[in-house]
Nucleic acid binder design. Structure first.
Lengths: 241, 241
DNA sequence: GGCGGCAATTTGGAGCTCCAACTTTGCGGC
DNA sequence: GCCGCAAAGTTGGAGCTCCAAATTGCCGCC
């Protein structure tokens, strides 16, 4: 930390160091604004800004009227992507495995494929697709938002399909899924997503773009949004012998 | 956006809306602080704070002396996890596939397993392990930081091993890797990581905990840190027929 | 000893101001 | 017509202040 750096970064760096090296354990109170100004000899603005930066980094949380506290490193629950334990596992099996009761809401509707989805499904722009939106919950708490797109020709999923899984359903239609491709990245949640997932400020989401393939043909693609502060994705990859 | 919300959020919401709906395209200038105070009838503080929030979200960038501009949505380059194109692909193959020249530095050393690593490798605490740190670059730009741990009995990797891949090397030692498990989550980078990866403020990283298994025995585990603003992870999963 | 309410503290929103460093623009002179 | 410099505009750091809402601890009363 060069001495030419802004003073508020000096405060940030010092507190951060204490948090990561454990001298400020989870739950420990951070000095208040007034205390910081005295301790570091900086102005209110710098003290306040330092606390804001640390809060944005997720290292501390502020409680109005009480103070700032070191945030407990959250336990990141595993979400097993596919093969849990097999491809025909019912919806929410991975959530249930955490001892939580899995529930979900969904609604299917006909729509025109937006450009990006059309590309992913190798359809023409505005081709008819079935869009199904899901909200998954574990013990009532929202866990995943998903929007799934299929070519309209497969029809809408029936209510009982959602507990059976996509692969079984497509199989019944004579479509054999041969490969799943998932692309994972992280991004800032959109306001609507923060709302539904009840995300605290500063939390990112994991975004999974999943496509089911039948040979060379994409038969379903979906966008899955997962709170980045509560979950990690688990990918198993058995090697051929 | 309820009217009871803080005023700065009103400004944030309005500008964000214009960015996501495209009326402010990438590169477009955002009104300056002075203009915002007039346009929305708010104080300097609120205008400034709104810009800061949008910048933290990654939607805009500020350029000192010039103004704030809508950030171009970065293209997220794919990093193909395993099978690229086969398990024996050389290091950096996925980076090369992007037309970039892959280079890396690494250093191996003996160490005592920290508690978490010991647990992942099913060793006793402080058991001897070989720790190898890597920095991967594509066209000189840092792409991945990785720290790999193996039981010390496998010895240190030789220079030529790093271009051959772990699976070949273990195979030569008579250890057959049967499964790879990757756990993916997102988090805030540590200062050292921001440094090496040259991360702009507010960018998260993808953290991959990877373990190579030989039957029931973990034979290697590593922590891989990837800039979240430039890459997405791609997982292929062929289904058994 | 227990309980209720008040006062002190704390966060977070919001306002205003000054300044250094940098970019952009436009004007004047060559 | 072009170059260079000065002025104007902009960001980002930093300071101070006031206030509403919430929490917490303490004091006094029953």
């Amino acid at each position: 930390m060069a001495s030419s750096d802004p003073v508020y970064l000096r405060v940030v760096a010092d507190i951060r160091r204490q948090i990561v090296d454990g001298s400020l354990p989870p739950g420990a109170p951070i000095p208040s604004r007034a205390q910081l100004t005295r301790k570091y000899g900086v102005g209110e603005t710098a003290a306040r800004h330092a606390l804001r930066v640390l809060a944005a980094e997720g290292l501390i949380v502020g409680r109005v009227g009480s103070g700032h506290y070191v945030r407990a490193r959250p336990v990141l629950l595993p979400l097993h992507r596919w093969r849990f334990p097999d491809h025909h596992a019912p919806f929410g099996a991975d959530i249930q495995s955490q001892g939580a009761r899995a529930t979900w809401e969904w609604r299917a509707e006909q729509a025109e494929a937006p450009p990006e989805i059309a590309q992913r499904l190798r359809l023409d722009d505005s081709a008819p697709v079935t869009r199904t939106r899901y909200v998954f919950r574990g013990d009532g708490k929202p866990v995943q938002l998903a929007t799934s797109y299929e070519p309209a020709e497969f029809g809408e999923p029936a209510p009982e399909d959602t507990s059976r899984g996509l692969i079984s359903r497509l199989s019944a239609l004579g479509v054999k899924v041969t490969e799943i491709v998932e692309q994972v990245y992280t991004r800032v949640p959109q306001p609507a997503e923060s709302d539904v997932l009840a995300l605290p400020a500063g939390v990112h989401v994991l975004h999974v773009e999943r496509t089911h393939w039948s040979g060379e043909r994409p038969v379903e693609t979906s966008d899955i949004v997962i709170p980045g502060d509560r979950f990690r994705l688990v990918y198993n990859h058995p090697l051929p012998s």
